[in-house]
Computed example of a mutant assay.
Amino acid sequence: MTRFAISRRAAVVTLAAATLAVSVGTAVNGATPTATAATQSSAQVRVHAHGASPSVQRALWENWAKVWNGDYDRAPGVISPKFRVHVSLLDGSPDTAIRGVEGLTAFVKQSRTLFNDLKFTTQVGPFIDGKHVVGRWIATGTYAGGIPGATAPVGTKVTFTGTDILRTEHGKVVEYWLNTDTIALLGQLGVGGK
């Protein structure tokens, strides 16, 4: 297994944690973002790296959400090569396998294989404080199978929430803290159920 490969089990477990986080969607506080923020290029984001303005940080958040929603081509413009994630994986495996653009992209892809039509939407935020961007998201999707211990049938609709904390440098995400309502997700999948 390469250093970027994440075991299916780790992805499954983390999915409850990370996929989710991920974060985010295209609506901010129920409003559609402006075309300027939503379409701002990664080159424009890089120009304003230090002390990035709220509009630049908001555009970064929107592009982060698009990566989590399956637009992997945006990842190099959003994720720093120094990227690292902080998450407690349910299977106890270290989060150190999720590093850089390739690591996060592999993790997101593996997480998305567990849920058809997975969609992240911003529920609250993003809140911007210097180099930190924080937002709460809600995710919806259809269970595709593959989570150990799940008794829910394939095709079960799920909804779960989480919060992403991003630290940025030079217009890219360098650190990511993920907090997902794993209990709610696993409950909907019948993991450890009655």
Score class of each variant (00 low, 15 high):
residue 65 A to D: 13
residue 48 H to A: 10
residue 10 A to Y: 01
residue 27 A to I: 00
residue 68 W to N: 11
residue 117 D to K: 01
residue 15 L to Y: 12
residue 48 H to E: 07
residue 75 A to K: 05
residue 74 R to N: 10
residue 101 V to I: 14
residue 142 T to F: 02
residue 19 T to N: 10
residue 90 L to S: 11
residue 81 P to F: 01
residue 152 A to M: 08
residue 46 R to Y: 09
residue 113 T to H: 12
residue 193 G to Q: 05
residue 7 S to G: 15
residue 158 V to M: 07
residue 58 R to T: 15
residue 100 G to L: 07
residue 39 T to P: 03
residue 58 R to P: 01
residue 170 H to R: 12
residue 23 S to R: 09
residue 4 F to K: 07
residue 39 T to S: 15
residue 116 N to T: 11
residue 39 T to C: 08
residue 30 G to D: 14
residue 62 E to D: 09
residue 67 V to F: 03
residue 26 T to E: 14
residue 146 G to W: 04
residue 118 L to Q: 03
residue 45 V to D: 03
residue 26 T to N: 14
residue 11 A to E: 04
residue 10 A to F: 00
residue 173 V to S: 09
residue 46 R to V: 10
residue 171 G to I: 04
residue 36 T to H: 09
residue 35 A to Q: 14
residue 6 I to F: 10
residue 93 S to W: 00
residue 143 Y to Q: 05
residue 116 N to G: 11
residue 152 A to N: 08
residue 8 R to C: 00
residue 149 G to E: 12
residue 153 P to K: 04
residue 64 W to C: 06
residue 112 R to C: 07
residue 87 V to M: 03
residue 14 T to P: 00
residue 17 A to L: 04
residue 24 V to R: 05
residue 92 G to K: 03
residue 153 P to R: 01
residue 76 P to W: 08
residue 41 S to N: 09
residue 25 G to H: 06
residue 36 T to A: 15
residue 11 A to C: 10
residue 59 A to W: 04
residue 74 R to A: 12
residue 103 G to T: 04
residue 91 D to A: 09
residue 162 G to W: 01
residue 26 T to C: 05
residue 92 G to T: 06
residue 97 A to K: 07
residue 158 V to I: 15
residue 34 T to K: 00
residue 37 A to N: 13
residue 38 A to F: 08
residue 2 T to P: 11
residue 102 E to W: 02
residue 73 D to K: 09
residue 106 A to R: 12
residue 43 A to S: 11
residue 143 Y to H: 02
residue 167 R to L: 08
residue 97 A to M: 06
residue 161 T to Y: 05
residue 75 A to I: 05
residue 4 F to T: 13
residue 145 G to W: 13
residue 70 G to L: 04
residue 60 L to T: 05
residue 186 L to A: 06
residue 69 N to T: 06
residue 86 H to L: 00
residue 94 P to E: 07
residue 125 G to A: 02
residue 12 V to R: 06
residue 2 T to D: 15
residue 19 T to Q: 11
residue 181 D to R: 02
residue 89 L to Q: 03
residue 168 T to Y: 08
residue 88 S to N: 10
residue 14 T to N: 13
residue 164 D to M: 06
residue 107 F to N: 05
residue 24 V to Q: 07
residue 186 L to H: 05
residue 58 R to L: 15
residue 175 E to S: 08
residue 40 Q to A: 15
residue 67 V to L: 07
residue 84 R to Q: 09
residue 85 V to H: 04
residue 35 A to V: 13
residue 178 L to T: 10
residue 60 L to W: 03
residue 111 S to K: 01
residue 187 G to S: 11
